[in-house]
Design a binder for these strands. Structure first.
Lengths: 246, 246
DNA sequence: GACGACGACTTGGAGTCCCAACTTTACCAA
DNA sequence: TTGGTAAAGTTGGGACTCCAAGTCGTCGTC
């Protein structure tokens, strides 16, 4: 039966249908709360709730004092504003691509490994590791957080600015100086709700999820560096490109 | 000033802090609406809104008739229940790994390419493509949606069941039969709110985002297959493993 | 001890009203 | 024509209320 489901869903479904079939094109104004209550013969709560749901789905945006509007397609499925992974160098990042210049802050320190980091680096909990925290900015806006961990005995004595945005070149160079050759990289990607510090640092509006990448550099079967990379989910695409050797 | 931001945020922030620092452990009951109004001296609207925000963030779940509870960690930061990409075969999927047996439904048909698909396959809008839709299930529960597009002239005459879960082997075999060698794979990962059909098919609770993978198989500079892969963001990790050839 | 009924409590849907802050438009004066 | 202002409309936060449906513990009966 469709007769007894919530009335606000009726509003949501009708508006959503009109948006996806193009009756309400991008940029078009959505009927206001007052108009919806009249048109659908529902209370203000239902109208309001319907608008909130559609906004949460990313189909419309509310402009205070003006109204709700159908979101532009470009915002809905954004193009990659930052190319994250390059073609010639898989898993390297190049934030200059796309015409945007990136800047970043970073700070290194030596700490005791937490359980999670110890597991990922195959160390014991409490072993010393070098932690480097980065905040990457594009056009001044924070765009990516990264926290990198290396076993402290792999001699990142003095911490120096990274060359590539992700410091892969720098890492490879530093490692090869200690006789370690990085053989492969493993990444694990998932999405979750930002923690308060993250939404603070990345200046995230409510409702935006983040992409969390756990990246580990391996030398044979020995992990030599692991990092947590956090980017806003709505503005970012991770791009992987890998040749099929077989 | 923090004095003049919405009161419901005060409630949200305090509860969230208690959840992330463990004062309210997973499974713990959240104060009810009535209790929150008393404790924080706010109206029911604010209390209710705060609970809705926390539920949307995936930190708590509401059980009607019982109360709100802190979500279990396993749901919050799940371990990989399905290994998505294998080590020996990068970008191949093996859903058997992890002790779970996967089943899937699929259906093929020939349609006219929409703009997006045409762009990805370097075709003209309206050119014929073979679309195959999959629903993958683990333990009976839908776990992954995939929609695959191939140019119709690449001769998927009779559509036959895939061997691997993602049909990469099958695809490679089929392509090599037509003299096409797949040279590399490019993937683009982002996260977004599920569309109604998606949350329906995947049986998603509200507030759960999805991971959307656009995967394209290339033969040289010619795209031969592209697919959209949609998985629940809270239960899935994408695992990439690639050797560094250089 | 087992079982069932009942009442207290909780969520989620829905309605109504009020207000501050903001946008848009229309109109009037210089 | 231009500039400024006032009015009307809109969003977002908030308070209060009512109700249906569901959970859960208590208490009395068998």
């Amino acid at each position: 039966m469709t007769g007894n489901d919530p009335v606000y869903l009726r509003v949501v479904e009708e508006l959503r249908a009109q948006i996806v079939d193009g009756t309400l094109p991008p940029g078009a104004p959505i009927p206001s709360r007052a108009q919806l209550t009249q048109r659908f013969r529902v209370g203000e709560t239902a109208a309001r709730h319907a608008l909130r749901v559609l906004a949460a789905e990313g189909l419309i945006i509310g402009k205070v004092g003006s109204g709700h509007y159908v979101r532009e397609k470009s915002v809905l499925y954004p193009l990659q504003r930052c190319r994250y992974v390059d073609h010639d160098a898989p898993f390297a990042a190049d934030m200059q691509a796309g015409g945007h210049r990136a800047t970043w802050d970073w700070r290194s320190e030596t700490i005791k490994a937490m359980r999670d980091v110890a597991r990922r680096l195959r160390l014991e909990e409490g072993d010393p590791v070098t932690r480097t925290r980065y905040v990457f900015r594009t056009e001044g806006k924070p765009m990516q957080l990264a926290t990198s961990y290396e076993p402290a005995d792999l001699g990142r004595g003095q911490s120096f600015p990274e060359e590539g945005t992700n410091g892969r070149k720098s890492l490879v160079a530093r490692m090869s100086a200690v006789g370690i050759k990085i053989t492969d990289i493993r990444e694990s990607v998932h999405t979750r709700v930002p923690q308060p510090t993250e939404s603070d640092l990345l200046d995230l509006p409510t409702g935006v999820h983040i992409l969390h990448v756990e990246r580990t550099h391996w030398s044979g079967d020995r992990p030599v560096e692991t990092s947590d990379i956090v980017v806003p989910g709505d503005r970012f695409r991770l791009v992987y490109s890998v040749p099929l050797g077989a």
